[in-house]
């Protein structure tokens, strides 16, 4: 028993205890604006599948801090999503959209 206890104590102090939380937290991948990187100049509001990448499960726009878009294209995304909503291509409110 004593041995086991010792082992357990040793284990919790080990590095792999971090797997109790998200293991990808440490190595954050650098975000980038895909529109700038790939030279996309126009965002089509009639393409809901594409716009789906920029909204969350409830149909809300994702912030720039998550998508990594530059301000210019984030604004364009926002207008495109709003237009798509008006045309019933995207929902205004949703649950379990993805």
């Amino acid at each position: 028993m004593a041995v086991q206890r010792q082992r357990r104590a040793g284990r919790t102090s080990r590095e792999d205890i971090k797997f109790l939380s998200n293991p990808n937290i440490g190595n954050n991948r650098k975000k980038y604006c895909r529109f700038r990187k790939y030279g996309i100049k126009h965002i089509d509001y009639k393409d809901p599948d594409f716009l789906l990448q920029f909204i969350n499960e409830q149909g809300k726009l994702l912030p720039r801090r998550i998508t990594g878009n530059s301000l210019k294209y984030q604004r364009k995304i926002a207008t495109a999503v709003k237009r798509a909503r008006h045309l019933a291509m995207l929902p205004y409110v949703a649950d379990l959209l993805k």
């Binding site: 041995v3 082992r7 040793g10 102090s13 080990r14 590095e15 190595n27 991948r29």
Partner: peptide
């Protein structure tokens, strides 16, 4: 590619730490 890279890095980091982390007095 990036995933592969990070994985390799992780593996490299892991090995030495494991050694010192487990002092084993008794075979079990």
């Amino acid at each position: 590619e990036q995933d592969a890279k990070t994985k390799a890095q992780k593996a490299a980091n892991k090995k030495p730490s494991r050694k010192k982390g487990k002092p084993k007095p008794k075979p079990e």
